[in-house]
Amino acid sequence: MWDIILERGSYWAIIAVMMIGLYIAFSAENLIKRLVGLSLFQTTICLFYVKLANVANATAPVLLAEDMPKDAYRGEGVAELVHVYSNPLPHVLMLTAIVVGVATLSLGLALIVRINESYGTIEADEIYASDVKVQMAEDADAARTSGEVVR
């Protein structure tokens, strides 16, 4: 029992945090809060990946002197490593993901600024309500005039 919790517990904790981000992204009516939730969600995905890359008792994937022999080149097979390093690949992937996250965030914020300028609000329900009002007016207009066309 304890083994399982020790082995998986960190995954579960990360999942719990991840779901909070997802919940905020879905439930918040305020657009900025929604974006913050989205970025929390993305950040926590990075936690998950990095946890995957974690190796017990390892060091960061910057090679130590013993693992850098002179005049090495890959002719026949791979090198033997003296030290244990954590897995570098997920780190690289998550560098990418973090940068993508901030790019998305700033694009979203620029959109929010524009929305605020043209709607005067950044609450999703108010924006929706004002859109519906416009749409209904347009539809009523269309119904009236198309009636005239038929006459």
């Binding site: 974006l35 989205l38 995905i45 993508v100 998305t104 979203g108 959109l111 929305i115 859109d131």
Partner: peptide, 22 residues
């Protein structure tokens, strides 16, 4: 102006989609 909320909800949904994919 409705293009703006449209783009924003596309952004949120699209980002969620990409995150799920990741």
């Amino acid at each position: 102006r409705r293009a703006l909320p449209a783009a924003f909800s596309y952004l949120v949904m699209g980002t969620l989609g990409a995150s799920f994919y990741v």
